[in-house]
Every structure is written in C-alpha cells, then in structure tokens.
Design a protein around this nucleic acid. Structure first.
Lengths: 341, 341
DNA sequence: TTGTACGCGTTATCAA
DNA sequence: TTGATAACGCGTACAA
C-alpha cells in the first residue's frame, strides 16, 4: 500500500510529477522521468486510494442501485431470475464504464438517500419501487437518476425511465387469444399498480378491440404473500371454468396456476388456455411449455446503466422514457378454439 | 451537504466537540452543548462523508463480494436463481451489521485484488471461483476472507469456508435410488471440479456401499456452453437407455434432461428416473416434479456474511470449514423398481 | 520541466 | 469541558 508521497520521496521527485505521470499528463514531464516513475509504479505495486481521490475531487465513481428488499413481498419475488438478470446487466455495464456499483435493498426513500449522500454517489438507479416520492428524492438528490420499471415518478430535474412496452406486449398476447376465438379471458395479477397497470390497460384494449366487454369478475387476484398463494389459487380454481383463457402478469404465476389446474383435473390447454409474461426459463422448461410475452431483462439493466452513464458524462439522451419491445413466444399452453368448431 | 466544520462555525464550537457529540462521546461534553449540537445536526440534516471518515480511520466498512462473471460460462449459469438468493442473503446480513457491500464480477484474482485494495475493503467474500490462487490472494490481502463453495483454497493466514454437505447429500440421493432397486445409475455434470467433485465422491460411495461397480461410461458430460447444451443432451439420449436412473448435479440440468427425454418419447419416471440438486423453484413447478437434494442458498449467503462479520469484529469462529446440511426432497421423477418385480 | 502548498471532511492527540 | 492542530492520500493552482 505505497502512496504517491512515498513514491515521490524514493524517486527524489515531487508528488505532482508522480501524480501527473499516473494521470497521463505527460506533455509536461520529461521522457526519462516518465520512465522512472512508471517503473516504480509497477515495482512498488501502486494502487490509488479511492477515498483520498474522492475526497479531493468530490465525486465517487459509484453508481447506486436501489431496489425493493426481499422481505417486503413474499419470499418468492426473488425466485424469479429477474433480479439476477437485471443486476448482471447493470453490473457488467457499470464495470466496463469504469464505475462501481453499490446495492441498497430498501423501500424507504429516506434510507436510500442517506446512503447515497454518505457515499457521495454520482448517479442513482432505482428499480421496482413505487414512484410516488419524486419530490422527496429531488429535495435531497440533484444528480442523475434512472428508473427501471417506474413510470409515475414526476420531479424536477426529471428522472429518466427504462421500461417495457408493457401495454403493447399485453395487447399482442390477448389479441392472440381473441384471434384464436377466445372471448372469456381472465386477467390474473397480484395488484394493478406499476407495470401491472400498463398491462391491464393493454388487456382491456385488446378485449375492446375484439368487441368483448370487460367485467370486474375477469380480474383474478393472486395474493403473493408466501402462505396465501395456495389459498388464492384454490379460490381461483373455483371460478376459472367460467373462462377459456387466463392472462397472467408473470410466468411465475402462470406456472403455478397451470400446476394447480392440472392438480384439479383441468387440462391445459384443452380445457383452459394460459399465457404468461417475462419468458423466464421456468416457462420454457415447464410442461406444457408456457406461451408468454418475452422481455429481455438483462438488456433492460444494460440500457438503464448505459443511460445513466451517458448522463454522467454529460452526453445527450434521446428519450426520457425508453420502452423496450416485447415479443410473443408461442408454446403449448394455448388452444385454438376455432379448430374445434 | 453540511459539514462538521460548517456546523461548528455556526454553533461557535470546535469541530472536535461536534464530532464527539456525533459519536456519542458525551461524557466529556456538557448537557447544554449536546442538546445544541444534536438539534443542529437534525436541522441541517448532517450526513457524514464516508470518504473523509475512511481516509482518517484507514478502513472502509466495505465488504467485497467477488464472483464469477456471467460471460465466462454459458449465459444460463445465471438462469439459476442461485445467485440472487445468495446475494440477497449476503446483502441483508451485511447491511444489518452496518457494513456495505460491493460486488466484483471477475474471475481474475488480480482484478479482484486491485479493486479490493483501491477501496480498502475490510473483508472479502469469494464465491464460486476456483480456489487455486490462495497464495496470490494472501500475498496482497491479509484481511479476513470467507469462501463460498470453494474448498481447495489453501493459504496463510487461512480463509474460512462456507459450503454444503455436498458429498453426504449426494450420497443420500443415490442411496435412495439404490434402495429402490436401481443399479444402473448415471452421473450427469458439466465437469468434476469444485462442488461437483464432492458430489461425485458421494455418488461413487453410494454405489460402492450398494455393491455396484462404477464404470467410466456412467459419467454423462453436459457441455454447458449455450449452443452446446442441446447437442450434449442429444448424444446423452442415445446412451441413456443403458441406465435406469440419472443423478444430475443441478436442477437446471435435471429439468433440461427430463424435457429432452420426454421429447424423445421416453417416459419419466416410468422408463428412466431422474434426480436433481438444489431444489430450485424450477424443480418444484416442473411436471413431473423433480426429486432433488434441497439446499438453502439464502442461508449459505447469510452464514458466510455472518462469519466474515464475526472475523471483522475479532470474535471467534468455531469451524474454519462450515458445511450446511442438505435434505432429500421426494417428488415424482423417481420410480420404485421393486414394485414392478 | 518540476516543486510547493493547500484543500477536501473527518478523526485523534494533546493542550488549555 | 472545550479547542487547536496534525494527520489521512490525493489532486491541482500556482510558483519557480
């Protein structure tokens, strides 16, 4: 752990010169000196002390990633490979850009902001939180912020958002059902907030465009808390025969629903069709394979991190709301009703 | 972003006094002063600057988590919810102990060590790497290190290890097969290094104890690279009828194998039995449900982080190698051969 | 081309 | 009970 000062003394140079060589400001240093310094740098294995550097420059090269903690919802929110995919994408991008990542798992904007200002974080990534606290955020943090899957965060200066074409993706999936002759289509979700609100909108639009009227009983609510899932599914099973198809807001839910229906003696897709969302591996390896709306989670992380880094560098960012496309992946959980007529 | 210095000036006090109040060294401060300072602290919303603090104290309160990066193996290594589970456990424990976590996704011990010394990381968590570089590690890093799922790291001062009873868990699973009358049992894995070596040992032991001789052809090698998986599975299918059961070193592999076998017209478990490892959600929601060896991944993360924090606090740690227990979870992918005889 | 001196925010030592 | 001052390691005006 040698310091610039010690190095300078050993070489009979000033700290300025050593520092200049380290930072490549070589146009003011003689070739001979550069050589000497660089050799010493390697020989003594110099590593800069980030704390000192940050203190001197009043920045940190840290990007904070704040997200909902595990305990908040049922434990199975982390079951989804979602998190690792997205975190992986962010980490990779951040690292390659020469930044560092610090993770805060908290739902409390105040907690997050405290950490963030303690560490003097250069930019902030917000993921999966509810976006009401824009004002509170901006009162204490003026640096760039990029939100992932948060649409209702209004504040000044504005935050940037990376998300999905949730509405269009859902529309496509539900239209696929109506095109195949389905008219009694349920929407299953744990709530209608955040991204689920967008998806719900796409669902209703597809129904409307097919001339189908939406009824309140079409909404199948799944209680996501660990011990409640089973109960919810059981009660859903009782009414599910009223429908020919169910759209689920996640593959995790779709898979659990399918298993439950099979256990109840209902065949998929012969008796009821099911569509999921995410295209996570579970839907692929499940039997029957789950027809679903594909999204690229890793890319979402990458794009969000790239956006933030552009902002940090002062580069222009075209869209303040960037919605990534989705794609319908057809597997074996949907029946073509027209064939049987 | 008010500083101690500014605060002191506003209150007509010295920085020392303010600092003392902040740190609760109140036995040397008058009650009146304490009150004044504490009020100002809240009023001006004082937040300490970690960089300055770390610089002054020569520590960081940072725990580094280094792990294999995504790109290194096939992309589907991250498909496993493994990572988020373990990272979630670590994050939670670290945060509750008042530390911070910094993630490095790198396979290069040198990269890791550079980051670690730059940030003056107080302690290091190593996960899923190959453990040959103990010496290189210790040449540059003397502070506490805890390894997760790394058994072959020998160095001085020693590292601590948190892992699994891989051998015993596998033994139990394979013994379960032999008890049910299986005698031709394959072992499917992508390699026999790291934890898989332990599992392979357990497998062979169970065979031996049942009086079954191990043959080289029992080892079914799956190439984990993205585009090779399919090919591997296809070639495995050609020889798999020689066996009545296959033990897979992960549920991910087990599920893929089962799907492939079904596609080839082989029934599970009627024609061939399959056992996995991990008990990840995929195995639970798959149909047929996959019999598997359960491990608590979150706990692994928690225990590792707790161990490191104990070391940082100078507390005693009983075992330098801590192997968490496993448990066989019986589902529907194994056939009882005795019934048919 | 190289060096001096100061500031970044905090903690720690020692004196008053 | 409080305060002055020096360190921590680095970057950078400004001076030489």
């Amino acid at each position: 752990m040698i310091t610039i000062k010690e190095l300078a003394r050993k070489l009979n140079l000033s700290t300025t010169t050593v520092s200049n060589v380290i930072h490549g400001k070589t146009h003011e240093v003689s070739a001979a000196t550069i050589e000497r310094v660089e050799k010493a740098l390697v020989e003594y294995d110099y590593v800069p002390n980030i704390n000192a550097r940050n203190l001197a420059q009043n920045k940190s090269k840290i990007i904070g990633l704040a997200m909902k903690p595990r305990a908040d919802k049922s434990s199975n929110i982390f079951i989804d490979p979602f998190i690792s995919e997205i975190v992986g994408g962010i980490e990779k991008t951040v690292r390659e850009a020469g930044y560092f990542m610090m993770i805060y798992a908290s739902d409390e904007m105040n907690d997050i902001l405290k950490q963030v200002s303690t560490w003097n974080v250069d930019g902030l990534l917000l993921f999966g939180l509810l976006g009401e606290d824009g004002a509170a955020l901006r009162r204490k943090y003026k640096k760039p912020v990029v939100c992932i899957d948060i649409y209702n965060m209004v504040c000044d200066p504005p935050v940037y958002t990376v998300g999905l074409e949730d509405e269009a993706g859902t529309y496509e999936a539900v239209k696929y059902l109506t095109d195949l002759g389905h008219r009694k289509i349920a929407f299953m979700s744990d709530d209608i907030i955040g991204v689920d609100r967008e998806r719900f909108r796409g669902y209703k639009k597809a129904l409307a465009d097919a001339g189908i009227e939406y009824e309140d009983r079409n909404f199948l609510k799944l209680n996501p808390w660990k011990d409640e899932v089973e109960k919810s599914l059981t009660s859903i099973c009782e009414t599910v025969r009223d429908f020919t198809a169910v759209f689920c807001t996640s593959d995790l839910y779709a898979v659990q629903l399918i298993d439950k229906l099979i256990d109840c003696g209902i065949r998929i897709p012969e008796d009821i069709s099911v569509i999921g969302f995410d295209d996570n591996p579970m839907s692929k390896y499940h039997r029957p394979g789950v027809t679903t709306v594909h999204q690229d989670m890793e890319k979402k992380g990458i794009v969000a991190a790239e956006t933030l880094i552009r902002l940090l560098k002062g580069l222009a960012v075209e869209k303040s709301v960037n919605q990534l496309p989705t794609r319908l992946v057809i597997r074996d959980s949907v029946k073509d009703l027209r064939k049987t007529q």
